[in-house]
Amino acid sequence: MPKWKAYHRPQHVQEALATLAHYQGRARIVAGGTDLFVELLNAPAPFEALVDITAIPELRTVRRDGPWIVVGSAVTHAEIVASPLIRRHGTALAEGCSVIGGPQVRNVATLGGNVVHALPAADGTIALLALDAEAQVASSGAGRRWIPLSHLFLGPGQSAVDATREVLTALRFRATAEREASAFGRVMRPQGVALPILAVAVAVRLDASGQGIERARVSLGPVAPVPFRSRRAEARLRGAPTSPDTYRQAAEAALEECSPRTSRYRATREYREEMITTLLPRVVEVAVARARGEAWARPRLEAVDHFSSFGAWRAPS
């Protein structure tokens, strides 16, 4: 009595969709499976069949398409971290993906899986939100459509992508240009589940002087049931001078609209709130410094440190 009676590895998206259609809801998509298999093995009645999309060549590429960086949903975390395109034009995503698991997990776990898992603290997803990413979803009836990433999240672990009928095929975001940069940071705790206490990603565009912020996008998790964009923090940053005061105000603005929870064995609401005021300004500062091309703020993706939150960067001396 196998847990699932078939394991399909289609070569094309259409084939994947046709296979799903054949099972009429009794099969689902799987990619890296590093989270999903653990869940399925403990589930009482998993699916009749699994449809593995990691053999679909189209879903395994990172490419530039005009203003967009397009990342196939089955691209692994390791490939993202290694991608010069993403390191340069979506630094926060490379950073977010670099801190997940060890090399064994990053070699298998995919960005699409991270997004569809829909955890409010998912590192890759938080980074994508700050990059204002869009997701491409393919379904038998509706063909392919691009939708804003934030529309995918219905609740903790609940994705709008119906993995029994649809395939998340790609994610895309606009390549950062001159005077733009992004950064990612998180606070972990050493005990218990390896999910962030708080993850923050920021993308900024500076004005021509380099001394003011033209616009910013700020995302955080877990501070709400779904990965969260703080519009208030973004508004506070927009048009403001690049200064510690500005960054602190942005954190305060984020606090006003975030509602982090106290979770037993994880963190108190108070702690998470303080981490917002601690981490968010720091990530903005790094993103701004990067947009200016300051060397100290360059990403150090291979770095390990005793600390998770501030270790990757050394402050300017």
Binding site: Y7, F37, V38, A78, G101, P103, Q104, N107
Partner: peptide
């Protein structure tokens, strides 16, 4: 069998993976 401990690591096409939950 949770891809947590790494004891099951093998190389697939040169890359280390946790074989315990690798189909």
């Amino acid at each position: 069998e949770e891809a947590e401990c790494g004891a099951c690591t093998v190389l697939i096409d040169g890359q280390p993976v946790n074989s315990c939950i690798f189909p």
